[in-house]
Design a protein around this nucleic acid. Structure first.
Lengths: 273, 273
DNA sequence: GTATAGAATTGACATTTATCAATTGTTTAG
DNA sequence: CTAAACAATTGATAAATGTCAATTCTATAC
């Protein structure tokens, strides 16, 4: 069992939905309209013939294995990517040869938007588990967005969301204590799972403690201690990468958040035009 | 002299350029093609008749006085804004009634891109000094971008740049010590001045130490001590808001940066298509 | 299965930064 | 010009987090 990562549940679910199809991982070709991430992705609010146009420019690549790179730092920018299943981290090298994790990317989320401006990827993307993505050649996408107002709109919306999310995170990293950071991180992951139709209470983290610590600007040891403390305080149950949220309210208090991880209304705004 | 803020120099320059015009602040109406920020702004790489179309949808509002709001938190989103002169800060309220500064905005920079997704401004924007902005109604802009490929491209580029910049900052806030943060902050401001044609060595900071500390996730006292130490070490000269960079190389080392504030090549990528 | 490498946890200690308090300097309103 | 409010600095102390080191646990290769 090499693949106990985040999306075990999803795979099960997908198998259930189309159990008659033989999934050939070497030539995956699932149309956008059949994709379960439809609502979170570019095709949202595109219909019929237009969707087929979009579909035609999208390439589905063979799945990445754990630790394989989707792109490297400095690679020239051609496409943006949408995670279909699995998960990735993005990271930048720092002067002292370390890496700095800049984000985790779950199904339905876009990668590479930060590369449009300079035409080069400022960070690398590496799979945290077996992961498949859709590749969307950017020139084609731009051309298509030129024809399809709803696609242009959706593209701008998704980029705006990215900006918004980054600022929420900055807010987090800027001010909070270690426990606030970890709490907000877990709630954020929880919310993102919920938006994708998974349990927001119980889930697997595909990233290591090291990656989490790096991402949150903390030492691994601090993160580890916080996990321990959260369990002692009955906020979560954690066994390795398997997490259960026990006291969401308390965690929100600790995270000190206004609406970052409010799961009630966010879905609404998420899915409305 | 109520206006010793950042852009004293710019105003002087602008006056020089069109000293025969009477500047009526209550009905400022300078066409995009005459604007000194042309190259940094939306009209970049748009020409002739197209530029006039863009020009026609842009509203120039009366200048904001210090501490006036451009928009409040939660205000519904209609327009994005471009800073023409002066500067603003954006900030979000936190649970405990504090505010968290999320960014500073200099001439040529856009505000409001984070509001597109949800249709509401997630942060407030307040003028740090006398400040004038161009208002660009978003629906019009979207419509125009639909017609003009270069405008769509520039809009996507600017949003990408915003994402990129935010990630750079996250990188900073996530990992670094107090001195690295402040150093990187000063270098960032310096670079942004340079890109706008001002001195990158000597400039005025329009924001208070408090705002800087808040932005960087530090206590005011820590920021103050760092300013003192930087002066003792001969890295900068600082008298209140007036800053002179003395040892840029050393500051870059302290900031621990790869290319965030590298002023040599960045201008290039900034101005090329 | 067993050995080995890597990940996660825990403890002791050092360092950094926040907090509290007092002081000085600067801008604003009358 | 003067007083009052605000902003910035400095010092002393406490709290949080990082670092170093040892140990336990887990996954992988043989």
């Amino acid at each position: 069992m090499t693949d106990t990562g985040i999306f075990m549940q999803q795979k099960t679910q997908q198998n259930k939905l189309r159990h008659k199809k033989v999934v050939d991982f070497h030539s995956v070709k699932v149309a956008c309209k059949e994709c379960s991430l439809h609502q979170l992705c570019l095709p949202r609010s595109i219909n019929g013939a237009d969707l087929e146009k979009l579909d035609s420019i999208i390439e589905r690549k063979r799945p990445l294995k754990r630790n394989e790179h989707l792109f490297q730092v400095g690679a020239s920018f051609h496409s943006i990517y949408v995670v279909r299943s699995g998960s990735l981290k993005t990271y930048s090298p720092t002067v002292d040869g370390q890496e700095q994790v800049t984000g985790f990317h779950l199904p339905g989320e876009l990668l590479g938007l930060d590369a449009i401006g300079k035409g080069k990827h400022p960070c690398a993307a590496k799979a945290l588990e077996t992961t498949s993505v859709c590749e969307v050649p950017f020139e084609h996408l731009e051309g298509l967005a030129q024809e399809l107002p709803t696609l242009q709109h959706q593209l701008l919306r998704l980029m705006s969301k990215e900006i918004f999310d980054d600022q929420e995170l900055m807010l987090l990293l800027g001010k909070k204590t270690a426990e606030a950071r970890l709490s907000a991180f877990l709630l954020s992951i929880s919310l993102r799972f919920k938006q994708r139709g998974f349990s927001s209470v119980e889930f697997y983290l595909s990233m290591s403690r090291n990656d989490i610590a790096n991402y949150l600007g903390l030492a691994v040891e601090t993160v580890s201690r916080m996990f321990t403390r959260f369990q002692e305080d009955g906020l979560i149950e954690a066994e390795r990468k398997h997490i259960v949220i026990k006291d969401r309210d308390m965690m929100q208090q600790i995270a000190g958040m206004n609406e970052y991880c409010d799961d009630s209304q966010d879905d609404q705004t998420q899915l409305s035009v």
